[in-house]
């Protein structure tokens, strides 16, 4: 099972900054390949959900003008 390091958590928080991003948006902002940034793609969503569970991120659903629904994250 992959583990989520403190560095990964910090990297995700830094990538989000003051914006509202989807999981894929965070991935893009972290840069490619993700593993090189210390946040493998597999660990991305568990990391985001863990940060939400502990209250450091807030998440909600948003629908854009094209009708696409995304789950967006922002800092609490």
């Amino acid at each position: 099972m992959a583990t989520v390091s403190a560095e990964s958590l910090a990297a995700v928080m830094a990538a989000i900054g003051n914006d509202r991003l989807s999981g894929y948006g965070v991935l893009v902002r972290l840069g490619k390949p993700p593993a090189a940034q210390g946040t493998p793609e597999l660990a991305l969503y568990p990391t985001l959900h863990r940060l939400e569970a502990v209250g450091r991120l807030r998440a909600g659903w948003s629908t854009d003008s094209s009708g696409r629904t995304r789950r967006l994250y922002r800092r609490s």
């Binding site: 099972m1 992959a2 989520v4 597999l42 969503y45 568990p46 863990r50 569970a53």
Partner: peptide, 9 residues
């Protein structure tokens, strides 16, 4: 594996 990680999170 992703499911297990999400459950843990």
């Amino acid at each position: 594996e992703l499911a297990a990680e999400l459950i843990s999170a």
